Amino acid sequence: MTPPPPSSSGSSSSSPRDDDAARLHAPFRPLRGPRVARVLGVAAVVLFSVLAATVVGQTAWDRVGFVVVGLAVMAFAEMQARVVAVPDEHGLFVRNLVHRRRLEWAEVVGVSFGGGRPWVQLDLSDGDTLAVMGVQRADGERGVAEADRLATLVALHTR
């Protein structure tokens, strides 16, 4: 059996504590949502391109319009596919469908995933809430585990 290659940081091994911290602070990304969004985006471009090529009685502008609509649907789907929440030692960066927000850990007072919500909701110290679309109920048990991991991070950093 051959030994594992040295890590890129120059040390021959990392401590289990470092590995646990790295896993705990890994980005939150949904699994199913991006796949579905990208498939639908490509399907929209194909469908609208076929319509542009086959519908009779169109002007050139009509054909361009069909393709532009397909590309707009694909761009929207790609925005949905890129949702993420990235934690670090200082806080959480949340990129949702349209909005992006950087939070300090002290701003987050609670994490909820109940009530049939499609994604995690953060309760903020100013009384507002923020959806975290990077953790989605559509991912089933993995989504629940990711919500628990986010709640663990909040508890860890707000002691």
Score class of each variant (00 low, 15 high):
residue 73 V to K: 03
residue 75 A to Y: 03
residue 156 L to I: 15
residue 142 R to T: 10
residue 61 W to G: 06
residue 148 D to I: 07
residue 137 R to P: 12
residue 73 V to A: 03
residue 76 F to Y: 12
residue 93 F to C: 06
residue 87 P to D: 03
residue 28 F to G: 07
residue 71 L to R: 01
residue 38 R to E: 02
residue 104 E to K: 15
residue 49 S to I: 01
residue 52 A to C: 06
residue 142 R to N: 05
residue 65 G to N: 11
residue 140 G to R: 08
residue 90 H to T: 15
residue 72 A to M: 13
residue 82 R to Y: 03
residue 125 S to T: 08
residue 159 R to C: 14
residue 136 Q to M: 14
residue 154 V to Q: 05
residue 12 S to L: 09
residue 26 A to W: 12
residue 118 P to Q: 10
residue 142 R to A: 04
residue 115 G to P: 05
residue 63 R to Y: 08
residue 123 D to H: 04
residue 118 P to T: 05
residue 69 V to A: 04
residue 108 V to D: 00
residue 100 R to E: 14
residue 152 T to I: 12
residue 102 R to L: 06
residue 27 P to A: 02
residue 108 V to E: 07
residue 93 F to T: 15
residue 152 T to H: 11
residue 4 P to L: 09
residue 61 W to H: 01
residue 34 P to R: 06
residue 67 V to D: 00
residue 15 S to M: 08
residue 148 D to T: 15
residue 151 A to S: 14
residue 87 P to N: 14
residue 38 R to V: 05
residue 108 V to C: 04
residue 25 H to V: 11
residue 41 G to T: 01
residue 26 A to Q: 10
residue 69 V to Y: 02
residue 68 V to K: 01
residue 156 L to C: 14
residue 124 L to A: 10
residue 80 Q to G: 14
residue 147 A to H: 05
residue 6 P to Q: 00
residue 157 H to I: 10
residue 26 A to M: 09
residue 138 A to N: 15
residue 66 F to K: 02
residue 74 M to P: 00
residue 83 V to A: 00
residue 37 A to Q: 11
residue 97 L to D: 10
residue 90 H to W: 15
residue 13 S to E: 02
residue 125 S to F: 09
residue 157 H to V: 08
residue 118 P to E: 13
residue 95 R to D: 06
residue 3 P to S: 09
residue 63 R to K: 12
residue 121 Q to A: 06
residue 41 G to L: 00
residue 20 D to K: 13
residue 64 V to S: 11
residue 77 A to K: 01
residue 69 V to L: 12
residue 138 A to E: 15
residue 29 R to L: 10
residue 158 T to G: 08
residue 45 V to M: 02
residue 28 F to S: 02
residue 109 V to I: 10
residue 41 G to P: 04
residue 25 H to M: 11
residue 42 V to A: 09
residue 68 V to T: 06
residue 128 D to P: 04
residue 25 H to K: 12
